[in-house]
Design a binder for these strands. Sequence first.
DNA 1: CCCACAGATTGCGTGCCACGCATATAGTGC
DNA 2: GCACTATATGCGTGGCACGCAATCTGTGGG
Lengths: 197, 197
Amino acid sequence: MNEEAQDMRIRNKRATREAIGAAALRLAIEQGSPLVRVYDIASEAGVSPRTYNNYFSSREEAICAFQSDRARKMGQALLARPADEPLAEAVVAAVVEHATPEPDRVGLRMIMSTPELEGEALKAFAMAEEPLSAAIAERIGVDPARDTFPDVMAAAVAGAVRVAGRHWLNGDGRESFADVARRTLTHLLPAITRAAP
Amino acid sequence: MNEEAQDMRIRNKRATREAIGAAALRLAIEQGSPLVRVYDIASEAGVSPRTYNNYFSSREEAICAFQSDRARKMGQALLARPADEPLAEAVVAAVVEHATPEPDRVGLRMIMSTPELEGEALKAFAMAEEPLSAAIAERIGVDPARDTFPDVMAAAVAGAVRVAGRHWLNGDGRESFADVARRTLTHLLPAITRAAP
DNA sequence: CCCACAGATTGCGTGCCACGCATATAGTGC
DNA sequence: GCACTATATGCGTGGCACGCAATCTGTGGG
């Protein structure tokens, strides 16, 4: 049962990590990010402050943990798409998967409007680039160390999703995030499809 | 002479800001970013520690100030290109301008390999996006609040330059940064030229 | 020439936080 | 039941951001 025991531990760690992250996000939304104290986050999550920073090394990281995990999943979603699917379709599908359930408007707006969280949010999006690049490289069969195409496309796609989030927030709220993301990705399609004829 | 006096003050502020930023970068390269103390940066720049954080609110911000200013200039460079130049050419030209003089390899490598600085570096690149987007929007005559194209392209271009930096660092050093950047931007050209027929 | 004023620098005090170290606890395999 | 490892926690230390108030500096007016 070694593996299962390890799984148990991993699950537990993930659970507390998510608990802390959720607590941090909730408090940041309620009180505003700069006012949140580490002690409060830890209390809310039911752990010691010392334990809190076994998981996160800054308040920003804890608040944006949700975004980070989302971004990671977006990259992995592309890897999981069927290999015979055209690259452009696979990318759009992976992004749309990642967009469900709809992001939390209030939380996203809080993050976007807080300069201190901006860097962390950008890091979260950047985290999606490596798996995206790997998936693209594998799909079109090039070496990402030699050819810059996968990295460039990954960065462009991540950027398009980020821009979609911004426009979705500023919009009138009647368009779903997935639709906005589809529109932004459309602008990239000529570049994406060019390399996968 | 009111205006000139104001100019003088602005120049002075800019000078001390650059002095502090340069000192921070130099010390970070020499000793490694986490070992640099605020007191040392301030001493090196000839100001008080208290003055240092009138200009920067974190060590990371000071160390990456040079990158931030660079990124800003890249955005403004596009605005300054002749209006009749095709968008794709103007973008490439602006990036190449921004690439001279060649970035400092050691400094860039230090920043790229320090996780704490990663967020700040990403913020620096993101700063270039707004002027880039504005320039693109003006050039093709669309409203950036309605049309996502300028923002998406700005993010893609900034991402391509960032990727170029990474590949340039990992390369054998015989290719200039400008050349690598040209290659990465080439991958975006189909998307860029599509909207400016 | 002196004064008033605004902007910039600086010193000091306060509160917050990241992190190393040592310890307690819990869950696992033998 | 026992040894072991991973995790949680307490405590202490050092560093840093920032508010506040005093000081310094350069500028323009009387």
